[in-house]
Protein backbone atom coordinates (compact mmCIF):
# COMPACT_ATOMS: atom_id res chain seq x y z
CA UNK A 1 0.00 0.00 0.00
CA UNK A 2 1.45 3.33 -0.99
CA UNK A 3 1.31 5.80 1.85
CA UNK A 4 -0.20 9.24 1.47
CA UNK A 5 3.12 10.79 2.34
CA UNK A 6 4.85 9.17 -0.60
CA UNK A 7 5.28 12.42 -2.49
CA UNK A 8 7.07 14.03 0.42
CA UNK A 9 8.83 10.76 0.97
CA UNK A 10 10.41 10.90 -2.49
CA UNK A 11 11.93 14.29 -1.68
CA UNK A 12 13.16 12.93 1.63
CA UNK A 13 14.56 9.89 -0.14
CA UNK A 14 16.43 12.09 -2.60
CA UNK A 15 18.19 13.85 0.27
CA UNK A 16 18.87 10.69 2.24
CA UNK A 17 20.19 8.98 -0.90
CA UNK A 18 22.79 11.61 -1.67
CA UNK A 19 23.86 11.65 1.97
CA UNK A 20 24.52 7.92 1.82
CA UNK A 21 27.81 8.69 0.12
CA UNK A 22 28.95 11.03 2.90
CA UNK A 23 28.34 14.31 4.70
CA UNK A 24 27.35 17.30 2.56
CA UNK A 25 26.22 20.84 3.21
CA UNK A 26 22.91 22.18 1.90
CA UNK A 27 24.17 23.60 -1.36
CA UNK A 28 26.10 20.41 -2.14
CA UNK A 29 22.97 18.36 -1.45
CA UNK A 30 20.93 20.44 -3.90
CA UNK A 31 23.68 20.31 -6.55
CA UNK A 32 24.24 16.60 -6.14
CA UNK A 33 20.53 15.82 -6.54
CA UNK A 34 20.29 18.02 -9.61
CA UNK A 35 23.37 16.42 -11.19
CA UNK A 36 22.40 12.85 -10.40
CA UNK A 37 18.91 13.32 -11.82
CA UNK A 38 20.17 15.23 -14.88
CA UNK A 39 18.26 18.28 -13.72
CA UNK A 40 14.91 16.50 -13.47
CA UNK A 41 14.78 17.01 -9.73
CA UNK A 42 15.77 20.41 -8.45
CA UNK A 43 15.69 21.75 -4.96
CA UNK A 44 15.60 25.47 -4.44
CA UNK A 45 16.76 26.93 -1.17
CA UNK A 46 13.10 27.41 -0.23
CA UNK A 47 12.24 23.78 -0.85
CA UNK A 48 15.39 22.23 0.60
CA UNK A 49 15.86 23.70 4.05
CA UNK A 50 12.40 23.20 5.60
CA UNK A 51 12.70 19.56 4.55
CA UNK A 52 16.26 19.26 5.85
CA UNK A 53 15.28 20.77 9.18
CA UNK A 54 12.31 18.47 9.45
CA UNK A 55 14.28 15.31 8.83
CA UNK A 56 16.91 16.59 11.23
CA UNK A 57 14.24 16.91 13.90
CA UNK A 58 13.19 13.36 13.08
CA UNK A 59 16.80 12.40 13.75
CA UNK A 60 17.40 11.02 10.27
CA UNK A 61 20.24 13.46 9.63
CA UNK A 62 22.47 15.49 11.90
CA UNK A 63 23.98 18.85 11.00
CA UNK A 64 27.35 20.03 12.28
CA UNK A 65 29.15 23.29 11.63
CA UNK A 66 32.52 22.93 9.93
CA UNK A 67 34.99 25.26 8.32
CA UNK A 68 35.22 24.48 4.62
CA UNK A 69 38.22 24.69 2.28
CA UNK A 70 37.33 28.26 1.43
CA UNK A 71 37.37 29.19 5.11
CA UNK A 72 33.61 29.57 5.18
CA UNK A 73 31.60 28.10 8.00
CA UNK A 74 29.15 25.57 6.58
CA UNK A 75 26.69 23.21 8.19
CA UNK A 76 27.27 19.70 6.93
CA UNK A 77 24.64 17.03 7.23
CA UNK A 78 25.30 13.35 7.74
CA UNK A 79 22.96 10.39 8.00
CA UNK A 80 22.25 9.14 11.50
CA UNK A 81 21.77 5.45 12.18
CA UNK A 82 17.98 5.87 12.11
CA UNK A 83 18.32 7.79 8.84
CA UNK A 84 20.27 4.91 7.34
CA UNK A 85 17.49 2.53 8.41
CA UNK A 86 14.89 4.78 6.80
CA UNK A 87 16.44 4.73 3.32
CA UNK A 88 15.45 1.17 2.41
CA UNK A 89 11.71 1.44 3.33
CA UNK A 90 11.46 4.78 1.54
CA UNK A 91 13.14 3.36 -1.53
CA UNK A 92 10.74 0.40 -1.50
CA UNK A 93 7.76 2.72 -1.22
CA UNK A 94 9.01 4.82 -4.11
CA UNK A 95 9.67 1.77 -6.22
CA UNK A 96 6.14 0.50 -5.46
CA UNK A 97 4.72 3.81 -6.64
CA UNK A 98 6.57 3.63 -9.95
CA UNK A 99 5.58 0.01 -10.44
CA UNK A 100 1.93 0.97 -9.88
CA UNK A 101 2.24 3.83 -12.35
CA UNK A 102 3.82 1.56 -14.95
CA UNK A 103 0.96 -0.91 -14.55
CA UNK A 104 -1.52 1.92 -15.00
CA UNK A 105 0.27 3.07 -18.12
CA UNK A 106 0.14 -0.47 -19.51
CA UNK A 107 -3.60 -0.70 -18.85
CA UNK A 108 -4.17 2.69 -20.43
CA UNK A 109 -2.07 1.72 -23.46
CA UNK A 110 -3.73 -1.66 -23.93
Amino acid sequence: MIGSGVKRGTAELAILSVLESGALHGYEIARRIEQQTQGKLRFTLASLYPLLYRIEKQDWVRGEWQIGETGRRRRRYRLTSSGKKKVAPLRAEWSELFQALRQLAKVAGA
Binding site: H25, G26, Y27, A30, L45, Y49, W65, R72, R73, R74, R75
Partner: peptide, 14 residues
Protein backbone atom coordinates in the same frame (compact mmCIF):
# COMPACT_ATOMS: atom_id res chain seq x y z
CA UNK B 1 21.23 33.35 13.73
CA UNK B 2 22.44 29.90 12.63
CA UNK B 3 19.62 29.59 10.10
CA UNK B 4 20.38 33.04 8.69
CA UNK B 5 24.07 32.14 8.40
CA UNK B 6 23.33 28.81 6.76
CA UNK B 7 20.89 30.18 4.20
CA UNK B 8 23.16 33.14 3.47
CA UNK B 9 26.01 30.70 2.85
CA UNK B 10 23.79 28.77 0.44
CA UNK B 11 22.97 31.92 -1.54
CA UNK B 12 26.64 32.89 -1.53
CA UNK B 13 27.54 29.54 -3.08
CA UNK B 14 24.92 29.95 -5.79
Amino acid sequence: AEIVEELAGHLEEI
